[in-house]
Simulated scan of single mutants.
Amino acid sequence: MHAFNLQPRTLTQPLSMPEWLADLAVDALIDEADLSPKPALVDRRGNGAHTDLHLGLMHASALSLWPAFKAMADAAIELGEVGLPLREAVGCIGREGEQVMLATTGGVNTHRGAIWALGLLVTAVALEPESCAASSIALRAARLALLDDRYSPRPLSHGAQVAQRYGARGAREEAQLGFPAVIQRALPQLKRSRAAGVAEQNARLDALLAIMTTLADTCVLYRAGETGLHTMQLGAQAVLDAGGSASLAGRRRLLELDQQLIALNASPGGAADLLAACLFIDRIESCDGIFQGAF
């Protein structure tokens, strides 16, 4: 097992590629948290369906993960290929990053799913920075996710237990399939909304809703069962069918969905993690030229 440095960088040093990727991953988490109005999720309006979360805590959690994301990119560069050594190094770094997160939040799980998703994507970009199309990044991340980490704790997480109970895809399976909710749903919707002249915040909300229309969100299943899941999926589709979050009719539907999910105590945290993944990949694609000889 390799040891990687999880110390924050000093601000006087120029950015390396791993540092830049860590910046983008943290920015994606902060942008996701700030996006408003998200149905039943923490945002600038309030705590959504949560009693133990608030926006400041989400920001602090995101910032605490910077060293872990950098270390994952460092590991990718050092080890150089998809294989068991890299999978186990990334897994170890992710678990250490999770402990830092929990220490920062006082034990509240703010970003466990995001550590998994964004960690794989950061690693995938660092492996082949010259190949940064969304589908290529997702494929490399999937190849890594398919490998079995021998050091991973065997007790199932809440999300994995719920996925097993309902026959749903959990975060692990979503990654192993190449993040279809991001590649097939969120990114295309984000680009469609932008092309239609929608403001960026509304385009991002539409991308979140596109994820919610089909995702078997294990956070929702854990908190509200199949009733909560169906409410989320049908409500998100209703917003998009009404014209999206930028339209008056769509905004009304969005606020109705927010109220329905809060009443069910159903918070789509899995969809939020995947929106952060979408925003990260979108930023990477838009900066693709920077990688050509920049680092």
Rank of each mutant, 00 (worst) to 15 (best):
S135N: 12
L21D: 05
M212P: 03
A160N: 08
A163S: 12
P129Q: 13
C287D: 13
E96K: 14
Q184G: 05
E32P: 08
D31W: 10
A175C: 06
N202V: 00
L261K: 12
G113V: 01
L275R: 01
S245P: 10
K38A: 10
D149I: 10
R165T: 14
L127E: 01
G83A: 11
A60E: 11
Q237P: 00
A276Q: 02
A224P: 08
A114D: 03
G159R: 12
A134Y: 03
L53A: 05
V108M: 00
L41C: 02
Q161R: 15
T51M: 10
Q7V: 11
A138N: 02
S286I: 02
S247M: 08
E81F: 12
R283S: 15
C219K: 11
R252G: 12
A28W: 01
R165Y: 13
P268D: 05
R192S: 14
L205D: 07
S16M: 02
R9Q: 11
A134Q: 01
E88H: 01
I30N: 09
D241Y: 07
S157Y: 07
G289C: 10
I115M: 04
D149K: 07
L21F: 00
P153H: 09
D148W: 03
E81C: 12
D241W: 08
G119I: 07
W116N: 01
R223Q: 08
L274A: 04
A199N: 08
L146D: 14
R223A: 01
P67A: 00
N202C: 14
R283K: 15
L147T: 04
E32K: 06
T110N: 00
K38L: 10
D74G: 05
P188D: 06
G80P: 00
G48H: 01
S64Y: 06
A22R: 03
A138K: 06
L156P: 04
L205W: 06
S193L: 05
H50D: 04
I284L: 05
A271N: 01
A263S: 14
A40P: 05
A195D: 13
Y151D: 14
M232D: 07
E98Y: 05
T227P: 00
T231I: 05
S136M: 14
A175Q: 06
M72E: 12
P37K: 04
A28I: 02
A181R: 09
Q259D: 13
E88Q: 13
R194L: 13
S245N: 08
E256A: 13
L127V: 00
A186Q: 04
A141I: 09
A73N: 09
I183A: 03
G80Q: 02
Q233N: 11
P153W: 09
K191E: 14
Q184C: 12
R45V: 09
S131M: 10
G83M: 00
V82D: 03
S286A: 15
